[in-house]
Write a protein that binds this DNA or RNA. Structure first.
Lengths: 243, 243
DNA sequence: CGGTCTTTTGAGTACAATCAAGGGTTGTGG
DNA sequence: CCACAACCCTTGATTGTACTCAAAAGACCG
């Protein structure tokens, strides 16, 4: 059913769009060649499962394009998103096989995958690669902790405003009005925000009626005044949640 | 080799209770001496502020004893705990000066502090130290994400049961009935769980009336049947939240 | 065009927050 | 040793936000 399978022969690292931001950012020359030799590309369609919760993972990977979600679930089916992977983000845990959360494609996703064992070996022999991964992991830890504040203390309206601000900021090229396509369904937004889809929908409507955003279909989003929207998010005015 | 005795004022690493679990776990001989040369001990009383939110941090540290909390706040004063530091946990972020959250002593806390610059230099030259820190950071990331599930999806009763189970499990030596002293005030528990102190108090009472726990004063806690308590937490029966 | 899936809207409910007292414990000074 | 203050915790009454259940409207696709 898939259209063109983008898992072509693996592209050249030199032309890679995430080359300077991903885990391989500090690698050059020989190091880069070693990584290139163990890499392989693979794509998933929106909605497809990449890794099941608790499943062993034979690879680690960089997100090349698209958007994937990390989720954890309770026995009775309640689900919480615990991370959102965007291009250049790293997936996997060197040194441990089992993934403690499920990974699902939110949009079409392409991963640049490395054999886990080979990657672990290279990390030991290439300290700056381990250093780069440490840096990225600490950033993710900060992001996760920021999100704990959102989950634990913000109202539904603030949560939705926070997420929309985040999406618009990422899409922003200093254009006005700002425009973006939401990479998430209402269900995924609800899972991220610790809300139900009905509540997300109601808050989106409320923000629209308040003139803070405009909706074009279910996914299109635009905003004339990002500062006004950010003011609804409950953060300080500059409101930057690093992600 | 060199038994540099700069640790006159500070205890000997060999006798350190967290020696084998902290960031220094993989260091021996020269490496350990180098760390010992840059370390210094300092203690804080319960309630004292160790680092303000956003403040620059000149050191990194291991928690030797006691319990400290990491919190983030919204402008209007709403506060969320984003981490709980127990003995052997690492505090600080190599490569970045500003702490994105406040650090407060929950009980009396003793830190083994290292000058941040010196520690960073050593990390570059001692790959296994960086590797150890990466491992610890990834564990913390997993713990933070586990907690996102608690904050986003659990009921008040489940949240409290989760925390009490956690505390009892940590204190456990396979004794029955299990007993522990809560290292947190109701306020700190509420901050951790994303609840108000009143709700925490009510749920503690409810769990007590259900015969799941016994309370001895405000801090004493005991439990005959940890499995029954864990069953209230909403996790799968084995219910282990790694921390 | 019909079918499925997603999103929106509505009505009613429940759970935790808020507001408000009232106990307990601890420590200090008379 | 007692009185008192400060702090922490508990309990009660009420409110309000977000959830649940239910149905309709809109998007997408063959």
């Amino acid at each position: 059913m898939s259209r063109i399978d983008l898992s072509l022969a693996t592209p050249d690292c030199a032309a890679c769009p995430i080359r300077h931001r991903a885990v391989c950012a500090t690698c050059e020359g020989e190091d880069l060649a070693r990584l290139a030799a163990m890499k392989s590309y693979r794509s998933w369609q929106a909605g497809e499962t990449i890794v099941l919760e608790g499943e062993a993972l034979a690879f680690v990977a960089s997100v090349v394009e698209g958007c994937a979600t990390l989720t954890r679930s309770l026995e009775d089916g309640r689900m919480q998103m615990v991370g959102l992977l965007m291009p250049s983000d790293f997936l996997g845990r060197p040194g441990r096989a089992a993934a403690p959360y499920a990974v699902t494609a939110a949009t079409k996703v392409t991963l640049c995958m490395f054999d886990r064992r080979a990657f672990e070996r290279m990390m030991v022999e290439t300290p700056h690669l381990a250093g780069r991964l440490l840096e990225m992991s600490l950033d993710e830890l900060d992001a996760a902790r920021d999100w704990m504040l959102v989950l634990g203390r913000k109202t539904a309206r603030e949560k939705v405003a926070t997420l929309l601000t985040l999406v618009l900021r990422r899409a922003s090229v200093a254009d006005r009005p700002l425009r973006a396509e939401l990479p998430l369904t209402r269900e995924a937004m609800a899972a991220y925000l610790g809300l139900t889809i009905e509540t997300v929908s109601r808050q989106m409507t409320a923000l629209r009626k308040a003139g803070l955003i405009r909706l074009e279909g279910a996914r299109g989003l635009s905003c004339d005044d990002l500062a006004a929207l950010a003011a609804e998010s409950g953060d300080d005015e500059d409101g930057a949640l690093p992600v």
